[in-house]
């Protein structure tokens, strides 16, 4: 500038005021798209503390608020519970690749059970079509769609959250919005997640899903039996994942993906119970874990058995 030393006081009040008005108008106009979401702002929700900091009374209020939110958004009476882990329990899963036919019923049953957004690619379970003769994920087909499955030269490998003992996603989270519960389930506090998606990048099993937009949930298909840490309706902009259906499994029931499997390829249970089905598989079958070399120590096992 040639006039660095210009006297500041010369500017008229009018000129300054017009610049200020123009500036404020510009900023307001730029932010106008936020008008449509201003109504959703809930100061109580915004100030809500982390799951671990909530007292039982506060939790009660939170659950009531979430139920009211669901009622307002979907017009459905959703029951949201805070179901705590059971003592002496550690959940694990096994999947028999020898009998899985790749019908994807697990993926769709899970989507429905867990109120997952019907947006493409959100399902927690991804079934891979693999070439017989190896375990090469790089050539797995995700979008296979033949008339019937199984195809004779292929086998099928469903992948979901492995509920690792050394979860890289939990390590990644900058705000502790995801953690491992005492029963082994890696959960997300959807009211705490800031949506940075670092956990999604960290997961070697591609098991996490992000709500890129407001979840698409058909009202009539909403599962009204929900839990805070699992399948309650989620907001936009947060991460979610498979929780082994903790709202079912913590009450002793099987996960939805297991019950729907037409070939009985799925085995679930409590690792600490020597008489459990999962223990039978781990002790009597030769199981393997996917990507053992990444050191995440999964609680999800694969085996081959006719």
């Amino acid at each position: 500038m040639s006039n660095d030393l210009v006297q500041i006081g010369r500017r008229s009040f009018l000129k300054r005021a017009s610049v200020a008005v123009a500036g404020v108008t510009g900023v307001m106009a730029s932010l106008s798209p936020l008008k449509e979401v201003v109504g959703d702002i809930d100061i109580e929700a915004w100030l809500q503390q982390h799951y671990h900091e909530l007292s039982p009374e506060q939790m009660k209020d939170v659950l009531a608020r979430l139920e009211a939110d669901a009622k307002r958004t979907y017009g459905v009476d959703v029951k949201v519970q805070d179901i705590k882990p059971r003592p002496d329990t550690k959940f694990a899963y096994a999947l028999n690749l020898g009998v899985c036919v790749g019908c994807r019923k697990c993926a769709y049953a899970c989507e429905k059970e867990n109120n997952v957004s019907r947006s493409p690619g959100m399902q927690y379970i991804r079934v891979l079509e693999m070439d017989k003769g190896g375990v090469n994920l790089e050539t797995a087909n995700h979008q296979y769609d033949p008339e019937t499955v199984p195809k004779p030269d292929k086998y099928y490998m469903p992948v979901q959250c492995h509920q690792c003992d050394n979860p890289s996603c939990v390590k990644a989270c900058p705000v502790n919005a995801t953690w491992k519960e005492p029963d082994g389930i890696v959960v997300v506090d959807y009211n705490w997640c800031i949506g940075c998606r670092y956990c999604e990048a960290a997961c070697p099993y591609w098991a996490r899903r992000f709500n890129f937009e407001k979840p698409i949930l058909p009202k009539e298909e909403i599962n009204t039996n929900t839990a805070y840490l699992s399948n309650r309706p989620r907001p936009q902009g947060v991460m979610e994942k498979c929780t082994f259906c903790l709202h079912r499994t913590r009450e002793g029931r099987y996960p939805a993906c297991l019950e729907v499997c037409p070939t009985g390829a799925r085995v679930f249970g409590n690792l600490y119970d020597p008489k459990s089905e999962i223990r039978y598989v781990l002790e009597n079958k030769r199981v393997f874990v996917l990507k053992e070399e990444v050191g995440t120590v999964p609680n999800f096992f694969y085996f081959f058995e006719a």
Binding site: G102, R104, A107, P120, M122, Q123, R126, Q143, V149
Partner: peptide, 11 residues
């Protein structure tokens, strides 16, 4: 053999 459910697609 049974018919598979539709592929997941991409968003």
């Amino acid at each position: 053999p049974i018919a598979p459910l539709p592929p997941p697609g991409v968003a």
